[in-house]
Nucleic acid binder design. Sequence first.
DNA 1: CTTTTACTAGAACGAAATTCTAGTTACGAT
DNA 2: ATCGTAACTAGAATTTCGTTCTAGTAAAAG
Lengths: 202, 202
Amino acid sequence: MVSRTRNRPERPATVERKASVLEAALNCFAVNGVDGTTIQDIQRSANCSIGSLYHHFGSKDGIAEELFIDGIQNLNRGMLTKLRRCKNGEESVKAVVGQYCDWSTRNKDLARYLHSRDIEFSSEARIRLKEIHRDYIGAIYAWFAPFVARREVRVLPVDAYVPLISGPIHEYVRRWLSGHHENPPAKVKSLFADAAWNAVKG
Amino acid sequence: MVSRTRNRPERPATVERKASVLEAALNCFAVNGVDGTTIQDIQRSANCSIGSLYHHFGSKDGIAEELFIDGIQNLNRGMLTKLRRCKNGEESVKAVVGQYCDWSTRNKDLARYLHSRDIEFSSEARIRLKEIHRDYIGAIYAWFAPFVARREVRVLPVDAYVPLISGPIHEYVRRWLSGHHENPPAKVKSLFADAAWNAVKG
DNA sequence: CTTTTACTAGAACGAAATTCTAGTTACGAT
DNA sequence: ATCGTAACTAGAATTTCGTTCTAGTAAAAG
């Protein structure tokens, strides 16, 4: 477990195989849920052996964790890239909402999986996730700090910004992903973007 | 499975036993997570036999489902009761936020469990949950309809109300329950209540 | 060319969910 | 009151499924 993640670079075949396993796993999870998916399902779907799975991921939860972490990082990266093209507080707040809509629509299965929280994370993975979250939130706050400083954005308890800006669209998307309502996020994007800006503007 | 749920009323001892199993299960889930809890853990903790568990609940997921459904209904009931004491749109919207804070604080383990989504629901349970949700949402909309009719509350796409009103506080509470921030919901209750009202007032 | 290490393979193992068989207890009908 | 039936309890037997283990093959390093 220790030696696997350090040292030598992975062979090209390894990178491919790991990617194909994660893809296969996501498909299985999307169809049968995490618990409903067996190691054999993944192994068959990825055309590899059990030994290979365990060599690369260590456990079933290991696969689930890596998929989860990759997904979060993909989402975060996209968000920061989008954000850094914005010129002011209003554009930024609205971009957060818009990007979340777009990403979730483009990556439905992955979005559903990230919402599902069906994974028993190892303590290592939990620590890793905390780090990722801390770094991400740090970058986000750093981006918004100037807008708050010049009172473009309202001063609030730090923990309140994310819920106020992203809470409604998260809730909407979660419901949409589980089939609760008709309109795809694109249809309500600007409504929620306006509401978010309204909630935090100075 | 079919005959169990119809026909004869349950004996008093049965009601007690089922309740004690659900309580035991919630404790185990809170400590070790759903996956980390074995049937034996529950069985020992509830002082009953494996046969008894399977007689009453059919499976481990059956226990998890019933706990989930009971929890949702408890939450819904409390919300409607609170709501029906309100006199106007503003009071109602703010009551939704306040009641959610209070309930989650009073029932931390259950709230965490409801947020966890760690359950593979059977199709029966999924249908049941849809029904419950439909009825609940129906009652909520019926309550708010008059306020919308007289433009106390803004006219919006139906699917937007819940996310706009409850989205932020849901997000906040979810983060609080998983240890992300300091302030208990009570501390930010009025902030989020005001924001919710602001988002939907006419 | 040899040695080492990454990687693949699938049979064997063990833990935990579920099923099965054999009961016991409550309760309505006769 | 007692008989028959269905609710309920019990825990051993079985099955399922994640994980480990042993035996290899392919590829890179020396």
